[in-house]
Amino acid sequence: MGAQPSDQGQVPLLEAPLTVIDWGRLRSNETQEGKKLLEACEGQGFFYLDLSCDESFLQDWKAVLAFMNRYFHLELSAKMKDDRKSDTHGYEPVATSTGAVNSLPDYYESLKEASRDELLGNTSALAPDVRDNHALFLRFCSTAHKVFMTILRQLDDYLGLDDQSKLVRFHREDRESLTTLSMFRYPKQESLDMGVGHNKHTDIGTLTFLLCEQWGLQVLSKDPVGWRYVAPKSNHAVINVGDTLRFLSGNRFRSAVHRVIPTRGLQHEDRYSIAYFLRAENDIQFTDSTGRQVSAKTWHDEKFNVFRETHEEQEKLPILTGGMERMESLVV
């Protein structure tokens, strides 16, 4: 159980009952951890991953946070030099998309480090500050990627998939994908005039590896039904299923709807989160939530476009939330 915010008073926050999986046991192929993984992907679609066994990665986590603290406190004009008008790399200022409250935009800024392909190649598409810390980010992403490949292999084994249907086959390292690392800052705010939080959505890709030490993330829980906070846990990542994994599994796995919203109306401190998004090869085909056959890249591009639509337009199509609300008749 994560500690409640110190200034929350006597009002308890409703927490999501998420499974905790031990990374050391999972990578050692312990049967019990594999079963817990399968059940978590079929159930809430969210789970904690205990990283306590990997001290070097925890140190890299601290180093990335230190980088974020430096970078996001630069003058806006300096950060805008990294604006690539891209969904996969570069800087993006606050109030770019719709937010967690109707009629208001979001209230976070982000630095998308670049696609994994660009990071591996150390290309000029990387922001200069990222290139200056290339070894750190390469180590960080390599560990997150190793976690994901282990998870996919475990799921392949439990599902008994043939060679052509194995999940790892859709994530070959020699094929182009939009796998990326993104860093987010939700700035301390004095009023709601500029926006609030991060709008409800399901993630685009296969799996998300999320690190955050502060409250704000909520998942639309299946049992019990309703919005529940994902409590921050020391030395733990939060892993969640994305749309692509749900589609590739024939809807067996659940891509849960989630959002970021301040616990007390306003963001009373800077909130930092780090997300490594595993995405399938660009040309992989699947049946989406509207029944169409689309490629992983098409789904990615279309969904990012919907993020920038008005709340009214978003409600008309089952894209932003991956069709999950309609499929499960969840009330938000």
Rank of each mutant, 00 (worst) to 15 (best):
G2S: 07
A3W: 11
D7G: 06
Q10K: 03
L14F: 13
V20R: 04
G24Q: 04
R25N: 09
R25Q: 07
R25T: 00
N29L: 12
N29K: 12
L38V: 08
Y48K: 05
S52W: 06
C53H: 08
C53T: 11
K62Q: 14
F67C: 00
F67D: 01
M68W: 02
M68H: 05
M68R: 03
N69F: 06
R70A: 03
R70Y: 04
H73W: 10
K79G: 01
K79R: 14
D83N: 12
D83H: 09
S86D: 15
G90F: 00
E92Y: 01
P93Y: 08
V94S: 14
S97V: 08
T98L: 12
Y107D: 05
Y108S: 10
L111M: 14
R116V: 13
D117A: 09
L119Q: 01
L119A: 00
L120N: 08
S124D: 15
A125L: 08
P128C: 05
P128V: 07
H134M: 01
L136F: 01
H145L: 11
T150W: 06
L152T: 00
R153F: 01
D156T: 06
D157V: 11
Y158R: 12
D162G: 13
F170A: 08
F170V: 03
E173P: 05
D174M: 09
D174F: 11
L178D: 12
T179N: 06
S182F: 07
M183L: 15
F184C: 05
L192Q: 11
D193L: 10
H198E: 11
K200P: 03
T202H: 04
T206H: 04
F209Y: 14
C212D: 08
G216L: 14
L217Q: 08
Q218Y: 06
S221W: 11
V225K: 15
Y229G: 04
Y229M: 05
V230Y: 07
N235C: 13
N235P: 02
V238H: 00
I239W: 00
V241M: 06
V241S: 03
G242E: 09
R246T: 15
F247I: 03
F247N: 02
G250M: 06
G250K: 12
N251P: 02
N251E: 12
R252M: 09
S255W: 07
A256F: 10
A256R: 00
V260P: 01
I261V: 15
P262D: 09
G265T: 05
G265Q: 10
L266C: 14
R271V: 12
Y272K: 01
I274D: 01
A275F: 09
L278F: 11
R279W: 05
E281Y: 07
I284Q: 13
F286Y: 10
A296P: 06
T298D: 13
W299H: 10
D301K: 02
E302V: 15
K303Q: 13
E313G: 04
K316D: 01
K316R: 14
P318E: 04
I319P: 03
G322D: 03
E325A: 10
E328Y: 15
S329W: 03
L330T: 07
V332R: 14
